[in-house]
Design a binder for these strands. Structure first.
Lengths: 152, 152
DNA sequence: AAGAAATACTTAACAAGTTAAGTGAATGCG
DNA sequence: CGCATTCACTTAACTTGTTAAGTATTTCTT
């Protein structure tokens, strides 16, 4: 069996950890986890979203998102209101306080991202992202019962 | 602020999830989590290791590893004995039962890896892994107080 | 040799990942 | 209309990630 430390999952895990390690301390100083930060960023770009759609953009599973939204709401960083047309749906948006918090974190965060880009190289970074996207694409639909080889 | 869904951390996260999603169901059938599987694989390649060294190879933090080893030991998949030279250290090894379990999981796991490789392309895969390794390297030591620009 | 510092873990506490089950509201369809 | 089904989300239960604190053992220092 192939040396597992050289397997694709491990390479991806280590690379991501190397990146995230740069951001976590700064986020932590502001009392935010990586996931909470993802949610705020996703919300900042938009007026209001449904929870399911937010889960998709922030790449979180429903149960995780449920918990985090509960906490962010308790901290007054986000707001929720039930959609009038469909009582099942709730629309989430970032609060004024949330925007303020983002503003206080963003500069540092941007600086770190810039430094990573500088170290690795902007061109290589773009190339890497392309490959990661291609990998995702090539695996889309695998294991969902539609991975037929060619004959269907 | 850049569209966060196109940020490097998100790209890495999505790519890794796309890969891991292929493996999880098979592991689950055998009652193993991704992390437990990593540990077994790390142990299979070696006689016995210290916990700290195992944490390094399986890329797990100490506390996670402590818990998982406790559980794997209770399931008789690994064995532990205290190093005679240094009572603080304990040597971990895979048990006979652990080897058996690995043997029952490995074929499926290999097949999945092969399919991923086939879909994405072996050459591209190798290229991607190189880039991931380079990214890791370029970030090594950043944020540890030794990231001086050039003057030291 | 004795106390201080470092080392190798383990425990604790809280946040998040993962799967399954639950709840209430809308839809489909007879 | 009535009722099963689907949908949007939440809860639950268990495992892991993350940081801090704790414990025992060894090494360093003098």
């Amino acid at each position: 069996m192939r040396d597992f430390s050289r397997s694709l999952p491990m390479s991806l895990l280590r690379a991501r950890e190397a990146v995230m390690r740069q951001f976590r301390p700064s986020l932590r100083e502001h009392g935010l986890t990586e996931q909470q930060w993802r949610i705020l960023r996703a919300l900042a770009a938009i007026e209001a979203v449904e929870v399911t759609e937010l889960a998709r953009t922030a790449f979180l599973l429903g149960p995780s998102l449920s918990r985090i939204l509960r906490d962010l709401e308790a901290r007054n960083l986000i707001e929720r209101r039930i959609a009038k047309a469909d009582q099942r749906r709730s629309m989430v948006s970032i609060s004024k306080e949330g925007v303020k918090l983002m503003a206080s974190v963003a500069p540092n965060s941007e600086a770190i991202y810039a430094e990573i880009t500088r170290r690795f190289g902007a061109r290589k970074l773009a190339e890497l992202q392309d490959m990661l996207g291609a990998l995702e694409q090539s695996l889309a639909g695998l294991g969902t019962g539609e991975e037929a080889s060619a004959e269907e």
